[in-house]
Amino acid sequence: MIEMKGICKSYPRPDEGPLQVLKNIEINISDGEYVAIVGPSGSGKSTLMNILGLLDHTESGDYTLGGESVSGLSSAKLAKLRNQKIGFVFQQFHLLPRTSAIENVEIPLVYSDADNPGQRAIAALEQVGLGDRMKHFPEELSGGQQQRVAIARALVTDPELILADEPTGNLDKASGEDLMDLFQKLNDDGRTIVMITHDENLAKRAQRIVRIDDGRLSELSDVDPSESQMGDVV
């Protein structure tokens, strides 16, 4: 699914030299994997997320997504790839206000050629358990429900990769747990999930945890999926 090799990224600073945010990142993520990327704030994990999500450009290195090298692609082509292959889930949900759940979920379909957008949106909302809240506005939904709408929006184009950036960061513990179950279910259905979090407990729900610190990646552990399930029960 994802192959990164020698990825570097820096930001210019006014007085000092450029700030190296990512340093020679190397990571391979296979189809169907569930990977948590953990790290403290300022470690570069958001930048890595933006690069993984084709929202930001790299300075050097190779990034291959789904077998296709994305270095040097036009921004229009990158937009198309985001639409088809990646579903984003943000910490702040980023739902459109005064726009119903189903209308929010339809947004990615505005930019695709998929037919039957309405039916796709309904199916996505049913998949996240909100089949009975489709006409509700975000203002009328709980935080957990809003994030589910956002996940439905990420799923509606049927992407292979879900990128989640602190998806439970704005939720209470119970809603967070529910959401993690939903991610687990999506992964069980074969979707590749990359989740960024600073919460190591949440990260344990993933198969694999990668730590990022000061712009460098290190593999933390390979968690056995069955073990993770067990931990849930206990």
């Binding site: 999500g53 929202l55 921004s75 229009a76 937009a79 198309k80 985001r82 639409n83 088809q84 984003f88 943000f90 980023h94 459109l96 947004i107 990615p108 505005v110 930019y111 695709s112 929006r153 184009t157």
Partner: peptide, 8 residues
């Protein structure tokens, strides 16, 4: 969001 979900 629109750009993230694929708007050119």
């Amino acid at each position: 969001v629109r750009k993230a979900v694929g708007a050119e």
